[in-house]
Write a protein that binds this DNA or RNA. Structure first.
Lengths: 109, 109
DNA sequence: ACAATATACAACCATTTGGTTGTATGTTTG
DNA sequence: CAAACATACAACCAAATGGTTGTATATTGT
Protein backbone atom coordinates (compact mmCIF):
# COMPACT_ATOMS: atom_id res chain seq x y z
CA UNK A 1 0.00 0.00 0.00
CA UNK A 2 2.94 2.31 -0.78
CA UNK A 3 2.08 5.74 -2.14
CA UNK A 4 4.20 5.37 -5.29
CA UNK A 5 2.96 1.83 -5.90
CA UNK A 6 -0.59 3.20 -5.93
CA UNK A 7 0.58 5.82 -8.45
CA UNK A 8 2.01 3.00 -10.52
CA UNK A 9 -1.22 1.00 -10.30
CA UNK A 10 -3.20 4.09 -11.34
CA UNK A 11 -0.97 4.53 -14.40
CA UNK A 12 -1.08 0.86 -15.37
CA UNK A 13 -4.84 0.41 -15.12
CA UNK A 14 -5.46 3.77 -16.76
CA UNK A 15 -3.19 2.84 -19.67
CA UNK A 16 -5.10 -0.42 -20.09
CA UNK A 17 -8.52 1.24 -19.91
CA UNK A 18 -8.49 2.36 -23.56
CA UNK A 19 -9.13 -0.18 -26.34
CA UNK A 20 -6.74 1.48 -28.80
CA UNK A 21 -3.97 1.29 -26.21
CA UNK A 22 -4.76 -2.36 -25.46
CA UNK A 23 -4.57 -3.07 -29.18
CA UNK A 24 -1.26 -1.24 -29.51
CA UNK A 25 0.04 -3.22 -26.53
CA UNK A 26 -0.97 -6.51 -28.20
CA UNK A 27 0.96 -5.53 -31.32
CA UNK A 28 4.12 -4.47 -29.53
CA UNK A 29 4.03 -7.55 -27.31
CA UNK A 30 4.01 -9.65 -30.44
CA UNK A 31 7.01 -7.78 -31.90
CA UNK A 32 8.71 -4.42 -32.41
CA UNK A 33 6.78 -1.78 -34.36
CA UNK A 34 7.67 1.80 -35.24
CA UNK A 35 5.24 4.50 -34.16
CA UNK A 36 4.44 5.21 -37.82
CA UNK A 37 3.73 1.52 -38.49
CA UNK A 38 1.38 1.45 -35.48
CA UNK A 39 -0.34 4.67 -36.52
CA UNK A 40 -1.11 3.20 -39.96
CA UNK A 41 -3.45 0.69 -38.27
CA UNK A 42 -5.85 3.17 -36.75
CA UNK A 43 -8.41 5.60 -38.06
CA UNK A 44 -7.00 8.58 -36.18
CA UNK A 45 -4.14 11.04 -36.58
CA UNK A 46 -0.49 10.09 -36.13
CA UNK A 47 -0.34 12.48 -33.15
CA UNK A 48 -3.20 10.68 -31.40
CA UNK A 49 -1.47 7.31 -31.77
CA UNK A 50 1.83 8.83 -30.68
CA UNK A 51 0.12 10.06 -27.49
CA UNK A 52 -1.32 6.60 -26.82
CA UNK A 53 2.18 5.14 -27.20
CA UNK A 54 3.48 7.77 -24.77
CA UNK A 55 0.83 6.79 -22.19
CA UNK A 56 1.83 3.13 -22.48
CA UNK A 57 5.50 4.10 -22.21
CA UNK A 58 4.96 6.24 -19.09
CA UNK A 59 3.11 3.32 -17.48
CA UNK A 60 6.08 1.09 -18.27
CA UNK A 61 4.05 -1.22 -20.52
CA UNK A 62 6.34 -0.62 -23.49
CA UNK A 63 9.84 0.67 -24.14
CA UNK A 64 11.25 2.39 -27.21
CA UNK A 65 14.55 1.89 -28.96
CA UNK A 66 15.94 4.20 -31.64
CA UNK A 67 16.83 2.69 -34.95
CA UNK A 68 17.86 5.41 -37.36
CA UNK A 69 14.94 7.76 -37.71
CA UNK A 70 12.49 5.20 -36.39
CA UNK A 71 11.49 4.64 -32.79
CA UNK A 72 10.80 0.92 -32.31
CA UNK A 73 8.30 0.11 -29.56
CA UNK A 74 8.37 -3.20 -27.75
CA UNK A 75 5.91 -4.48 -25.11
CA UNK A 76 7.20 -5.26 -21.63
CA UNK A 77 5.66 -8.52 -20.46
CA UNK A 78 6.97 -7.96 -16.91
CA UNK A 79 4.73 -4.93 -16.54
CA UNK A 80 1.76 -7.01 -17.71
CA UNK A 81 2.67 -9.62 -15.09
CA UNK A 82 2.90 -6.97 -12.39
CA UNK A 83 -0.71 -6.02 -13.13
CA UNK A 84 -1.70 -9.69 -12.97
CA UNK A 85 -0.07 -9.97 -9.56
CA UNK A 86 -2.09 -6.99 -8.29
CA UNK A 87 -5.21 -8.90 -9.27
CA UNK A 88 -3.83 -12.00 -7.55
CA UNK A 89 -3.58 -9.97 -4.34
CA UNK A 90 -7.24 -9.03 -4.70
CA UNK A 91 -8.09 -12.70 -5.12
CA UNK A 92 -6.11 -13.45 -1.96
CA UNK A 93 -8.25 -10.95 -0.05
CA UNK A 94 -11.34 -12.81 -1.27
CA UNK A 95 -9.83 -16.17 -0.27
CA UNK A 96 -9.35 -14.80 3.24
CA UNK A 97 -13.06 -14.06 3.37
CA UNK A 98 -13.92 -17.59 2.30
CA UNK A 99 -11.52 -19.03 4.87
CA UNK A 100 -13.21 -17.02 7.63
CA UNK A 101 -16.64 -18.23 6.52
CA UNK A 102 -15.39 -21.83 6.51
CA UNK A 103 -13.97 -21.40 10.01
CA UNK A 104 -17.36 -20.17 11.23
CA UNK A 105 -19.19 -23.09 9.64
CA UNK A 106 -16.88 -25.77 11.01
CA UNK A 107 -16.71 -24.16 14.46
CA UNK A 108 -17.98 -26.32 17.35
CA UNK A 109 -21.33 -25.16 18.74
CA UNK B 1 -12.25 -9.03 -30.11
CA UNK B 2 -16.04 -8.63 -29.80
CA UNK B 3 -17.38 -5.08 -29.62
CA UNK B 4 -19.22 -5.57 -26.33
CA UNK B 5 -16.27 -7.42 -24.79
CA UNK B 6 -14.09 -4.40 -25.51
CA UNK B 7 -16.72 -2.23 -23.82
CA UNK B 8 -16.55 -4.58 -20.86
CA UNK B 9 -12.75 -4.40 -20.77
CA UNK B 10 -12.92 -0.60 -20.92
CA UNK B 11 -15.30 -0.55 -17.95
CA UNK B 12 -13.27 -3.03 -15.91
CA UNK B 13 -9.89 -1.38 -16.38
CA UNK B 14 -11.38 2.07 -15.91
CA UNK B 15 -13.03 0.98 -12.65
CA UNK B 16 -9.68 -0.36 -11.44
CA UNK B 17 -7.75 2.76 -12.43
CA UNK B 18 -8.76 4.74 -9.33
CA UNK B 19 -7.09 3.99 -5.97
CA UNK B 20 -10.22 4.70 -3.94
CA UNK B 21 -12.16 2.21 -6.05
CA UNK B 22 -9.40 -0.41 -5.73
CA UNK B 23 -9.52 0.08 -1.97
CA UNK B 24 -13.31 -0.24 -1.90
CA UNK B 25 -13.00 -3.41 -3.98
CA UNK B 26 -10.50 -4.87 -1.49
CA UNK B 27 -12.94 -4.24 1.34
CA UNK B 28 -15.96 -5.71 -0.37
CA UNK B 29 -13.96 -8.73 -1.54
CA UNK B 30 -13.08 -9.39 2.09
CA UNK B 31 -16.73 -9.14 3.14
CA UNK B 32 -20.06 -7.35 2.76
CA UNK B 33 -20.14 -3.64 3.63
CA UNK B 34 -22.95 -1.09 3.45
CA UNK B 35 -22.34 2.02 1.36
CA UNK B 36 -22.43 4.12 4.54
CA UNK B 37 -19.85 1.87 6.23
CA UNK B 38 -17.59 2.19 3.19
CA UNK B 39 -18.06 5.96 3.03
CA UNK B 40 -16.93 6.30 6.67
CA UNK B 41 -13.43 5.13 5.62
CA UNK B 42 -12.69 7.92 3.18
CA UNK B 43 -12.04 11.61 3.44
CA UNK B 44 -14.67 12.56 0.88
CA UNK B 45 -18.44 13.01 0.77
CA UNK B 46 -20.89 10.13 0.98
CA UNK B 47 -22.06 10.97 -2.55
CA UNK B 48 -18.51 10.64 -3.94
CA UNK B 49 -18.11 7.18 -2.39
CA UNK B 50 -21.56 6.18 -3.58
CA UNK B 51 -20.54 7.12 -7.14
CA UNK B 52 -17.36 5.03 -6.85
CA UNK B 53 -19.47 2.08 -5.71
CA UNK B 54 -21.79 2.65 -8.71
CA UNK B 55 -18.79 2.58 -11.10
CA UNK B 56 -17.62 -0.72 -9.60
CA UNK B 57 -21.15 -2.09 -9.81
CA UNK B 58 -21.61 -1.09 -13.48
CA UNK B 59 -18.30 -2.79 -14.28
CA UNK B 60 -19.59 -5.94 -12.57
CA UNK B 61 -16.85 -5.93 -9.92
CA UNK B 62 -19.38 -5.82 -7.08
CA UNK B 63 -23.03 -6.56 -6.52
CA UNK B 64 -25.43 -5.07 -4.02
CA UNK B 65 -28.05 -6.77 -1.88
CA UNK B 66 -30.76 -4.95 0.05
CA UNK B 67 -31.00 -5.60 3.75
CA UNK B 68 -33.60 -3.34 5.30
CA UNK B 69 -32.53 0.20 4.65
CA UNK B 70 -28.94 -0.81 3.93
CA UNK B 71 -27.45 -1.78 0.60
CA UNK B 72 -24.76 -4.40 1.23
CA UNK B 73 -21.97 -4.47 -1.36
CA UNK B 74 -20.01 -7.63 -2.06
CA UNK B 75 -17.03 -8.06 -4.39
CA UNK B 76 -17.31 -10.45 -7.34
CA UNK B 77 -14.12 -12.45 -7.57
CA UNK B 78 -15.16 -13.86 -10.97
CA UNK B 79 -14.98 -10.37 -12.48
CA UNK B 80 -11.48 -9.98 -11.02
CA UNK B 81 -10.52 -13.30 -12.62
CA UNK B 82 -11.92 -12.21 -15.97
CA UNK B 83 -9.53 -9.25 -15.90
CA UNK B 84 -6.67 -11.58 -15.01
CA UNK B 85 -7.54 -13.75 -18.00
CA UNK B 86 -7.40 -10.73 -20.32
CA UNK B 87 -3.85 -10.18 -19.08
CA UNK B 88 -3.10 -13.86 -19.64
CA UNK B 89 -4.12 -13.41 -23.27
CA UNK B 90 -1.66 -10.55 -23.57
CA UNK B 91 1.05 -12.78 -22.13
CA UNK B 92 0.13 -15.43 -24.69
CA UNK B 93 0.70 -12.91 -27.48
CA UNK B 94 4.15 -12.24 -26.04
CA UNK B 95 4.88 -15.98 -25.82
CA UNK B 96 4.06 -16.26 -29.52
CA UNK B 97 6.74 -13.68 -30.23
CA UNK B 98 9.30 -15.59 -28.21
CA UNK B 99 8.36 -18.81 -29.96
CA UNK B 100 8.93 -17.17 -33.35
CA UNK B 101 12.32 -15.85 -32.26
CA UNK B 102 13.30 -19.30 -30.99
CA UNK B 103 12.24 -20.82 -34.31
CA UNK B 104 14.49 -18.37 -36.15
CA UNK B 105 17.45 -19.09 -33.89
CA UNK B 106 17.20 -22.86 -34.13
CA UNK B 107 16.55 -22.77 -37.88
CA UNK B 108 19.11 -24.57 -40.07
CA UNK B 109 21.40 -22.20 -41.99
C1' DA C 1 22.33 20.65 -50.20
C1' DC C 2 17.50 19.36 -50.43
C1' DA C 3 13.38 16.82 -50.18
C1' DA C 4 11.08 13.26 -47.86
C1' DT C 5 10.40 10.63 -43.68
C1' DA C 6 9.73 9.74 -38.59
C1' DT C 7 8.93 11.64 -34.43
C1' DA C 8 7.76 14.88 -30.75
C1' DC C 9 5.19 18.36 -28.81
C1' DA C 10 2.35 22.64 -28.21
C1' DA C 11 -2.15 24.70 -28.47
C1' DC C 12 -6.70 24.01 -28.80
C1' DC C 13 -11.43 21.78 -28.13
C1' DA C 14 -15.38 18.69 -26.65
C1' DT C 15 -16.32 15.18 -23.44
C1' DT C 16 -15.56 12.61 -19.33
C1' DT C 17 -14.13 12.27 -14.61
C1' DG C 18 -14.04 12.92 -9.73
C1' DG C 19 -15.41 15.79 -6.60
C1' DT C 20 -19.07 19.00 -4.31
C1' DT C 21 -23.91 20.37 -2.31
C1' DG C 22 -28.70 19.86 -2.27
C1' DT C 23 -32.96 17.27 -2.72
C1' DA C 24 -36.00 13.19 -2.94
C1' DT C 25 -37.29 8.63 -1.48
C1' DG C 26 -37.65 4.54 1.22
C1' DT C 27 -36.94 2.17 5.90
C1' DT C 28 -36.73 1.86 10.85
C1' DT C 29 -37.45 3.21 15.47
C1' DG C 30 -39.46 5.83 19.32
C1' DC D 1 -46.91 9.53 12.87
C1' DA D 2 -42.51 11.86 13.21
C1' DA D 3 -37.60 11.86 13.44
C1' DA D 4 -33.50 9.71 12.09
C1' DC D 5 -31.04 6.94 8.94
C1' DA D 6 -29.43 4.89 4.32
C1' DT D 7 -29.41 5.58 -0.27
C1' DA D 8 -29.89 7.60 -4.83
C1' DC D 9 -29.50 11.15 -8.00
C1' DA D 10 -29.47 15.84 -10.17
C1' DA D 11 -26.87 20.01 -10.97
C1' DC D 12 -22.75 22.05 -10.85
C1' DC D 13 -17.48 22.71 -11.21
C1' DA D 14 -12.39 22.14 -12.10
C1' DA D 15 -9.25 19.03 -13.99
C1' DA D 16 -8.04 15.27 -16.95
C1' DT D 17 -8.76 12.69 -21.30
C1' DG D 18 -8.76 11.76 -26.17
C1' DG D 19 -8.92 13.79 -30.15
C1' DT D 20 -7.45 17.58 -33.69
C1' DT D 21 -4.01 20.70 -36.50
C1' DG D 22 0.26 22.93 -36.83
C1' DT D 23 5.20 23.42 -36.02
C1' DA D 24 9.98 21.96 -34.90
C1' DT D 25 13.73 18.67 -35.13
C1' DA D 26 16.51 14.83 -36.49
C1' DT D 27 17.64 11.31 -39.95
C1' DT D 28 17.71 9.43 -44.58
C1' DG D 29 18.21 9.11 -49.54
C1' DT D 30 19.13 11.55 -54.16
Amino acid sequence: MDETSEDRADALFHALSDRTRRDILRRVLSGEHSVTALAASYDMSFAAVQKHVAVLERAGLLTKRRNGREQLASGDVEAVRSVASMLDELEDVWRGRVARIDALLTEEN
